[in-house]
């Protein structure tokens, strides 16, 4: 029994690690899309954040400077998106595609220019990253059956940004559903005309929405390169931004369901490699590659409305034209 418990805890621990960047990106998407701006540029902001964090952490030796750079890089891309979609009412999808491709090219070009390392940054040392934090009493409580290992293995021992990811869900929920700003932000995504006629600027609200999205993607990027990993590798976001987008839809643009979607996708990602080489009854060798794309298939089915229904914010993707 205790061994099974430890196995389960290890899987859940891995889930938390893989879900953390998804959670941050999905919350970013949630705030942006609730304000009415489609964000398929999560991937690009994540990648830019990852690169900026690793590059600055390498140059300064400080993970905090790296984190600040990640936030700045991601926010800059968010502002490009905002300038195109909010100020100039451009196509939000096209702008998102541009952000992704721009990030893909820029990170490698600048990485080569700075480090001449084939588009990577040098590996980071221990003091240049966010290392795991042992929560108080984790060691002394480990003897308590079931709960001791749970606390020591699963709750304790993550880096700062994992805790930030889980905290971000609470924060986003509070901000959007418990503050006046949040009410207005959501209104800008549902019925911008009403917000406007109440004398509140839709553009300002949407800009704040994408700024928050930029900050959250920056955190996720820093997590990839200077907390979970130890340096930047080209294309290291590897579709996580899009997976977060899927989680956002799967969770129907609501914080708690989105969190569960991220955890589910993280769990699939943790379990898939363990299935490698395993013989399943009826199926034969486990099709690991197919398991890892299960989240995308589930999102398509949900969007199609065959079970449940995912209804986006009503004004999502629609530029707001103020009447004079």
């Amino acid at each position: 029994m205790p061994e099974l418990w430890i196995d389960l805890l290890t899987v859940l621990d891995g889930t938390a690690r893989l879900a953390a960047p998804l959670i941050l990106c999905a919350m970013a998407g949630l705030v942006s899309e609730r304000s009415g701006i489609v964000d398929i540029g999560l991937e690009g902001k994540l990648l830019a954040g990852a690169f900026a964090a690793a590059a600055v952490a390498t140059l300064t030796g400080s993970p905090w400077a790296g984190l600040a750079a990640a936030l700045a890089a991601s926010v800059m891309l968010a502002l490009v998106h905002g300038f195109a979609c909010i100020t100039h009412r451009g196509e939000q999808i096209v702008s998102g595609v541009a952000v992704n491709i721009l990030a893909l090219g820029m990170t490698v070009v600048v990485a080569n220019a700075l480090f001449r390392h084939g588009g990577h940054t040098p590996a980071l040392g221990a003091g240049e990253r966010f290392s795991p934090i042992a929560l108080p009493f984790a060691e002394s409580l480990i003897g308590i059956p079931l709960l001791g290992p749970l606390y020591a293995e699963l709750v304790s021992g993550h880096n700062l940004l994992v805790y930030a990811a889980f905290l971000s869900v609470l924060l986003v929920w509070w901000l959007l559903w418990r503050t006046r700003f949040g009410l207005r932000l959501r209104a800008a995504g549902e019925l911008p005309e009403a917000v406007d006629s109440a004398g509140v600027s839709v553009s300002a609200l949407r800009y704040r929405g994408i700024l928050i999205a930029g900050l959250l993607c920056g955190l996720a990027g820093a997590y990839l390169s200077i907390a979970h990993g130890a340096g930047f590798v080209r294309e290291m976001s590897a579709g996580k931004g899009f997976l977060a987008l899927a989680a956002l839809i799967f969770g129907r643009w609501k914080p708690l369901p989105v969190l569960f979607a991220c955890l589910l996708f993280g769990l699939l990602d943790t379990v898939a490699p363990r299935l490698q080489g395993m013989e399943l009854p009826l199926i034969g060798p486990a099709p690991v590659a197919l398991v890892s794309v299960l989240p995308y298939a589930m999102t398509v089915v949900l969007l199609a409305g065959f079970f449940g229904r995912a209804i986006p914010p009503r004004a999502l993707g629609r530029p707001f034209v103020k009447e004079h």
Partner: peptide, 26 residues
């Protein structure tokens, strides 16, 4: 070049999409 690689083409591609697509109305 030692510092410039073919990914510059991606940067230009992203900028083209930005200027001729997303910022078409600017």
């Amino acid at each position: 070049f030692e510092t410039i690689t073919h990914e510059l083409a991606l940067v230009i591609q992203g900028l083209v999409i930005l200027f001729s697509g997303a910022l078409a109305y600017m």
